[in-house]
Structure formats: structure tokens, C-alpha cells
Design a protein around this nucleic acid. Structure first.
Length: 498
DNA sequence: TTTTGAGTTGTTCGA
DNA sequence: GTCGAACAACTCAAA
């Protein structure tokens, strides 16, 4: 009877499945894991990939990964499973592992970078050739790049139409529950022996000398539990008034969910539904505008992945090729000053020091420091992108590249060339009391709320009273704002001619 | 096909 | 102090 309704060739329930964790280090709302957990036995694995061509993780990301894997491993163990950790070439390891364990299904959630897609496609072909079923799922996006199209059928290059097209597609589906149990094969791993199997510490992800991670430990709780906690803190706090306050770095005004999303400790579907539920239940006093503004921020992440998928060289090549002719300056001393938060512009230095100390920077300040590097120092956006990649816990192949290109004006739907942030008026506008600056640039704390944004204008006796010697205790401005602005305007204008 | 409207986040200047 | 205009022209998406 029931056979009549079944597909002609129903896929048999897998007997032994391999679940490959990548950028989806969670048990909740993990469709690949749900598929694998339907098997009689399931093996879960994470590979610290050393494949040729894959961009190595930055330092902050490595730190985060350590604790995220720790949390994931604990969660898997609590359900009767074991997380196998390997290091090496996934092209070799995944098929070998699947074969050695006698798996009939390998499951993973899709990723969208160029090399990552090529890797996954090659592994899938390899598995298929060995008679092993490989299935991939959407675990990390609300709307995948290949399903969102303009009416002409192509990719979308402007955010607003992109987001409208997404929203017209469907409401984000309800998150999946975590599997209740994840039965490991009874006799393994010992009897089958995986020579490359490692303990977490073998990956050597944590800094040793010096240990620079103190500020990160104080700021973050990597892992799915930390992500869920961060969501409720956000909904209980900054969500109210988000549309208005999200530009303020001087208090907790954003969700700070980016690193959790980058590692897939929580899915955008989970965040979406938690937010919508809290709003509908009246648990947050935010209005619809706040919620939609927050959803649009999630939308920007989706847009960045859309761009990465359709423009695989997003992190290395100008999206607008006319920027290839841009007269970038090579200035290693200025780049170093920027990296170290020693530019002499307080809001820039505060941002760069927040980044160094915490592995994070407030969104508004990211734009200011990026604009400063690109337009005041005329340094190639790729140098900034690389620094963020190394120092941000939320370093993300799509978001990071798309955002840097956007600020440079080289990207999709980019900022117009004349949008050159004034670092002291931005500071005055978004950090009006200078609280953010005092926190991260304490040597300026003695200045008043106005002069703290432009210490070079402070009279000598005011500087003396505040214990500041410009050029000694705090740098003089690396470059004059008026001069830099005119120089950048001229350089950017020269591009639009051709 | 052609046309039309719109496009995340600013700054400066002059009235 | 406030306000509107200029800062270019182009590309995208849809009608």
C-alpha cells in the first residue's frame, strides 16, 4: 500500500553515515547532521584542512575555533557520539575515512567560496565513484546564491532588489531540532584505527608566546551555548531601538553575533525565528522597524555570499575592474601605524585597538577605519582586508571581502567616491561623550568630550593638564584630513573618466 | 527595447 | 545654527 506513494527508487536509510562539520559547528538546525543522525550509526568529523589553495585561518579565528570545537566535541559526546578531529588534505581524508568506516552516506552543509566548492565537488565525485552517497545541504544561509535571481534570471548586484527578491521567495523555514542521540559505531574508532586522529590540542590553535588572547577570553564565549546566550542578551537589550542605536560604539548596541555565525554555531534561521518570536510575543519593546533593520543586516550577510558565489575572486580582485587602475600608495609605516592604532585620529585608533584586544570592532567604526586606510592613506583595500582576516574573530570570506570592496567603492552597490569619512566628525557624532575613545585610548582620557576627538586642536595648557604630549604620549595626525580628502577625491575622480 | 527610478551608512559650503 | 545643494556619472532592475 504505502509503496504506491513512495518514490520509484527510495533512498534506503543509511546504515552508517559520516557527518563532516565545517562552518556549521552546532547540533541545532543542522540539516546535514539531521540526515546523518537518521542512520543506524553516525561518525562526526572535523578536518583542519591544509589543502593547497585554501586560505589559512587568521590568528583570532584559530583561537575561536579551538573553543568552538571543544564545545562541539562536548555536545557530541553528551549524545553518545564522538567528534573525530583530523588535520590534513580533506580531498584525501574524507574519502579515506568514509571508506575505512564503511559509510554509505557522507553528509555536509554547503559552503560558497571558490576553492571550497571545488574541493567539495571533487570529494563528492570521488565518493560517488566508490559507491558512497554524498549529500549536501543548506545549513548556513536563509537564501542560497543559486536560488536568488533577478527577473532576467541573473545574479543581483544591488542590495535592495536582492533582499526584496529573497523575501519574495519564502519566509525562512523553522529551525530543525538537534538530534537526540548520535550513535557511534560500537567497535570504533580504536579497532579501525585512524592514524591521523588527533586531540584538539594537537591542532595548536591557541597562541602561546605571547598569549595575546586575554581580551578575547574576556569578551567571548565561543560555541553554540554562547551563541544562544548572545541572542537572548541581544533581544533583551540592544534590539530595542536597534534601528537608531546600532551606529553607537560607546555602548552595547549591536548583536555581536558575527563570530558565532561565522563558525556556524548558530544558524541565521535560528536567529531569525528567535527574533520574530520575541517580537510577536512582546518580549522586546522594539518596533517593527528595529526588527526589519536587524533582519536587513542578516540580509547583508546573505548578499555578501551571493556576491562571493557569483564573483569567486571577491577577496582578491576589484569587483569593478576600473579600480585596477587606482593609484594605491605603498606605505608600510602608515599601514603599521593603522594596524597598531597609532594614527593620531582617536576614533580610528580606538577601533583598531578594540580589534586587537577583543577580536572585534563595532560596525560603524569598521567603516571609519576602513575609509581612513583607503581614502586617507590611499592604501589598497586588500591590505586592510588581510589585517581584518587575521585579527577578527568573525573573519568571514564573504562579509569581509564584500565590505572592504564596498568601502573602497570598488564593490557592488558601492559607496560613492565622494563619501570620505571625516574621522573627527564621525567620532563626535557617534561617540559624543568620547566614552569609546576613553576605553580604548586611555592616554587621551583627560581631555574633554569635544577635544578628545581632535587632540591636535587642544591648547598646550589643556594638553599638559591632561598629561598628553603630542608626538610622544599620543601621535600627531598621520596625515592632515583636508589634504587627504582632496588627494582622495582627485584620485577617485580620475577613475570615473574612463 | 527603451525608459525610468533608484541606489546602507557623508562632507562641505554657502545662503 | 540649520538647511539644501553639490559632489559624477553609472549601473542595475524592473516596468
Amino acid at each position: 500500500m504505502t509503496n504506491l506513494a513512495a518514490p520509484a527508487f527510495p533512498a534506503p536509510a543509511p546504515r552508517r553515515a559520516l557527518l563532516w562539520f565545517r562552518s556549521d559547528l552546532r547540533l541545532e538546525d543542522n540539516p546535514a547532521l539531521a540526515a546523518a543522525a537518521g542512520a543506524e550509526e553516525a561518525i562526526t568529523v572535523f578536518v583542519d584542512e591544509t589543502n593547497a589553495g585554501l586560505r589559512p585561518r587568521g590568528g583570532a579565528s584559530r583561537w575561536w575555533l579551538h573553543f568552538s570545537l571543544q564545545a562541539l566535541s562536548d555536545a557530541v559526546s553528551a549524545r553518545g557520539g564522538k567528534l573525530v578531529i583530523l588535520k590534513g588534505d580533506s580531498l584525501v581524508l574524507i574519502p579515506a575515512l568514509a571508506a575505512r568506516y564503511g559509510c554509505d552516506l557522507v553528509a555536509w552543509n554547503r559552503r560558497y567560496g571558490k576553492v571550497e566548492r571545488e574541493t567539495d565537488a571533487a570529494i563528492k565525485a570521488d565518493l560517488k565513484a566508490s559507491g558512497i552517497r554524498a549529500e549536501s545541504f543548506n545549513g548556513n544561509l536563509l537564501y542560497e546564491p543559486m536560488e536568488v535571481r533577478s527577473q532576467a534570471g541573473g545574479p543581483l548586484r544591488v542590495f535592495t532588489p536582492f533582499w526584496k527578491a529573497c523575501r519574495a521567495l519564502r519566509e525562512p523555514p523553522t529551525p530543525l531540532p538537534a538530534p537526540e542521540r548520535m550513535p557511534m559505531p560500537g567497535s570504533v574508532p580504536e579497532s579501525l584505527g585512524i592514524p591521523q586522529a588527533l586531540g584538539l590540542t594537537d591542532l595548536a590553535l591557541l597562541p602561546t608566546k605571547p598569549d595575546w588572547a586575554g581580551g578575547l577570553r574576556a569578551t567571548w564565549q565561543p560555541g553554540a551555548a554562547g551563541a544562544v546566550r548572545r541572542v537572548s542578551e541581544f533581544l533583551d537589550g540592544p534590539m530595542e531601538g536597534y534601528a537608531e542605536n546600532r551606529d553607537r560604539p560607546d555602548f552595547q548596541s549591536t548583536s555581536m553575533l558575527a563570530p558565532h555565525l561565522a563558525f556556524g554555531e548558530i544558524s541565521p534561521r535560528q536567529i531569525w525565528h528567535a527574533t520574530e518570536a520575541a517580537f510577536l510575543a512582546g518580549e522586546t519593546t522594539s518596533n517593527r522597524r528595529d526588527v526589519d533593520k536587524f533582519f536587513a543586516e542578516i540580509g547583508w550577510r546573505e548578499f555578501a555570499y551571493h556576491l562571493l558565489f557569483h564573483y569567486p575572486d571577491l577577496a582578491t580582485a576589484n569587483y569593478q575592474s576600473r579600480f585596477d587602475a587606482f593609484p594605491w600608495e605603498r606605505n608600510d609605516a602608515a599601514l603599521l601605524a593603522w594596524q597598531q592604532g597609532q594614527t593620531g585620529y582617536p576614533i580610528v585608533d580606538a577601533g583598531m585597538r578594540e580589534l586587537w584586544q577583543t577580536g572585534f570592532m563595532h560596525n560603524r567604526v569598521r567603516m571609519i577605519v576602513a575609509s581612513f586606510l583607503i581614502k586617507h592613506l590611499m592604501i589598497d583595500w586588500r591590505a586592510g582586508e588581510a589585517w581584518f582576516w587575521d585579527t577578527l574573530c568573525d573573519a568571514d570570506p564573504a562579509n569581509n571581502a564584500a565590505s572592504w570592496q564596498w568601502v573602497a567603492g570598488a564593490g557592488a552597490d558601492a559607496a560613492p567616491y565622494f563619501r570620505i569619512f571625516n574621522p573627527f566628525t564621525q567620532g563626535e557624532k557617534f561617540d559624543p561623550k568620547g566614552a569609546y575613545i576613553r576605553r580604548y585610548v586611555p592616554e587621551l582620557a583627560g581631555l574633554g568630550d569635544d577635544l578628545i576627538h581632535r587632540p591636535w586642536e587642544a591648547p598646550p595648557q589643556v594638553l599638559a593638564r591632561a598629561g598628553i604630549t603630542l608626538g610622544t604620549t599620543y601621535p600627531k595626525p598621520l596625515v592632515d584630513h583636508g589634504f587627504a580628502r582632496e588627494r582622495a577625491l582627485a584620485a577617485f575622480k580620475s577613475l570615473s573618466g574612463d
